[in-house]
């Protein structure tokens, strides 16, 4: 682990990982995930990466004889951590279990491709990372809730407000919004996500 951190730090100018204890500290891991979710915190991600990468590679090497495939598991797992960190809910489980779940799903889909020539990526349906009740609360179709949200919307920065209004109240797709606003799709998506995070904090307990 220490060797690994040094290796990581040697050429890294922008993201210096914090030191992580060798044993799993789920509170700290959860905090890192939360920083990634709410702040797109690259340093937090680098720290998480340093902690999990050797473990993931080690586990994957036992499943795939080809080292490239073990690295692919690592890349795919950690990209999902980066892109899905906002799905992690500290009240529903441990951070290490959440990362393990992603790694297990990535591995399952890759092995299935090798063994069956199917590219159907079933893991997200067999082991959903987002449960349906969570998906439903994102829709906000309840009338009173909508009024409540409209009031909270005004507290958002203008660029996030536009994205939320377009997506939730004018039923535009993220792609349409990107075109309409002349922004890259990724920017629309991250603005939307940040806005939702903020709204959730504002609306607080009423929505759980």
């Amino acid at each position: 682990m220490q060797v690994f951190n040094q290796a990581l730090q040697s050429d890294t100018e922008c993201f210096k990982p914090m030191t992580m204890p060798a044993q799993i500290d789920n509170t700290q891991l959860a905090q890192l995930l939360s920083n990634i979710a709410t702040k797109r915190d690259k340093q937090a991600f680098t720290t998480l990466f340093g902690f999990f990468a050797p473990k993931i590679v080690n586990i994957s090497r036992r499943k795939f004889s080809n080292p490239d495939q073990a690295n692919e598991v690592l890349q795919e797992t950690m990209s999902n951590v980066w892109r899905k960190a906002h799905f992690f809910d500290v009240n529903k489980g441990q951070a290490s279990t959440w990362v393990y779940t992603i790694m297990r799903n990535v591995t399952f889909d890759m092995l299935r491709k090798v063994q069956t020539n199917k590219e159907d990526n079933l893991s997200d349906d067999i082991w959903p990372m987002v449960d349906e009740s969570q998906a439903k609360t994102e829709v906000y179709d309840d009338h009173l809730a909508k009024n409540h949200i409209l009031a909270s919307l005004d507290t958002l920065p203008e660029n996030q407000k536009m994205v939320v209004k377009g997506f939730y109240f004018q039923d535009m797709s993220q792609e349409q919004l990107a075109e309409h606003l002349g922004l890259p799709l990724g920017t629309v998506k991250s603005r939307l996500r940040l806005a939702i995070e903020k709204l959730k904090v504002q609306l607080g307990e009423h929505h759980d």
């Binding site: 890294t12 991600f45 690592l74 990209s79 892109r83 990724g186 998506k189 991250s190």
Partner: peptide, 13 residues
């Protein structure tokens, strides 16, 4: 690898 991952601004919906 880290650089390539964090360069992606999109979050999963």
């Amino acid at each position: 690898m880290i650089g390539a991952i964090v360069a992606d601004e999109a979050v999963a919906s």
